[in-house]
Write a protein that binds this DNA or RNA. Structure first.
Lengths: 105, 105
DNA sequence: TCAATATTTCATGAATAGGTGAAATGTGGA
DNA sequence: TCCACATTTCACCTATTCATGAAATATTGA
């Protein structure tokens, strides 16, 4: 579980997840991700490996491209872990997590 | 937001949060945390600083002890950020986050 | 087979995280 | 005031993370 949290605790990797989630099962090729994020190919691979090892994304070769997509089960699992296991479904925490206008203190 | 995620992406710090959440506003003194976690005083301070800077805990001196408690608003905010901002309230992610029996893949 | 495209692997180096223990600080009681 | 307790600060060291660029690998089409 920690590896999944650590994996998400990086700007580029969080951005990868944000780009992939709306694409659902279709995913996006590594090259497109690299372009949109403005990172080098090898840099992207580094981060994709971290996400894949954490079970947050999966990959599938299609021709000469490699398509990456999110694993919604793991993604939900991480959030559920924080909500249930770590915060014990504390009512105040849960209530705040429903709000969409949160700004860091 | 990233600092909060990074702050939680560490075993000791996650454990601190888990110990503090059920204590609500009462919190726990640093010494008690150090004992329960089996970490050195200076090591504990290091992690408490990270959590406090991320807005996840707050501290208050009471006599010679320093009492730490969680900030449920930030805690909920982090989870809400993942759920709303990062995963766009994706139905599958949300559904999985409600489950309490998740095991890492 | 050759060349072009897409991605990964590898070696290198800088920056940061985090553990340890000694010293410093703040607080209360004798 | 002096001492004990509770916590923080500091210096030091090691391991890890991450960025970079060159070389290697896989795939397709000419």
């Amino acid at each position: 579980m920690l590896t999944a949290l650590s994996a998400m605790a990086h700007e580029t990797r969080l951005e990868i997840v944000r780009l992939l989630v709306p694409c659902k099962g279709d995913g996006l090729p590594a090259g497109v991700l690299a372009d949109r994020l403005g990172v080098s190919p090898s840099g992207l691979t580094f981060h994709l490996n971290a996400l894949e090892q954490a079970g947050l994304v999966s990959s599938q070769r299609k021709g000469r491209q490699v398509i990456y997509s999110t694993r919604t089960d793991t993604l939900g699992g991480v959030i559920g872990y924080l909500l249930n296991d770590c915060c014990g479904r504390d009512p105040e925490v849960c209530a705040k997590s429903e709000m969409t206008d949160f700004v860091l203190p």
